[in-house]
Amino acid sequence: MQSPLLSVDDLHVAAGGVDVVHGVSFDLAPGEAIGLVGESGSGKTLTCRAILGVPPPGVTVSGGAIRLAGEDVSRYSRRQWDRVRGPRVAAVFQDPASYLNPSLTVGRQLDEVLRVKNGLDRRAARTRAVELLASMGLHRPEHVHDQYPYELSGGMLQRVLIAIAVSGDPDLLVADEPTTALDVTVQAEVLDLIAALRAERRLSLLLVSHDLAVVAQLCDRVVVLRHGRVVESGPTRRVLDDPADPYTRQLVADHREYGLDRLVTR
């Protein structure tokens, strides 16, 4: 096996001095997609925030290491993170609207990232931005470029956020519940987009979700968290079809209790 792109080793995260993530470990190989699943309060979001170096206020990494391409980033300074974010790691979250400035056009915000991170001049940044928006499957990208966030739907905003995320050509994309707030049809489109980007760009993916079906769409492997501990991890099909841990079995059973498949069998 080649050396992992991301290696989380015995990660402890404390909120207000009390450990809430107790020794989470997993490796993510280049080009691989891992799903981090668990119910609310399982620590999946805190783990993901710690990996991105943006823990919520009052939350700190209290032990263990997070190695990105071999370098421990868990105690990086702000300045060090600035170097890593963009070319190495980028992220998208559940509510794209809150990550965009409502008083600037989305294009201007994408241009700015391209100019700061990729050193493009104003004109080149705009050209590149429109290209990126087009490759996100957005119709009339020049038009979208000049629109304000409130003029776009949730699905379009999430595409813009993904465009911003991949603009620095990162090795790893961290997606925290990227489709939870979207309609089913839009969710499907965004999942397709992420799958296509992975194939095109050899992008590694860390997907955080409470929805096992979403994880089943994109991920090679699954890590199941409960109360801040890994209860099971392994290839997606093996974990979902033949879960070894009773908790995972319960999660899968809960998920399967209601679903379109029931109609077929009844």
Binding site: G137, H139, S153, G155, D183, V184, T185, V186, Q187, A188, E189, L191, D192, A195, D211, L212, A213, V214, A216, Q217, L218, R237, L240, V252, H255, R256, G259, L260, D261
Partner: peptide, 24 residues
Amino acid sequence: QRLVTSVPSIDGPRRPLITEGVHV
């Protein structure tokens, strides 16, 4: 129809949507 084919399944990836036609 599009709605029904969009529903993700725990049993693995669905066929990618054909993005022509109805666009939302």
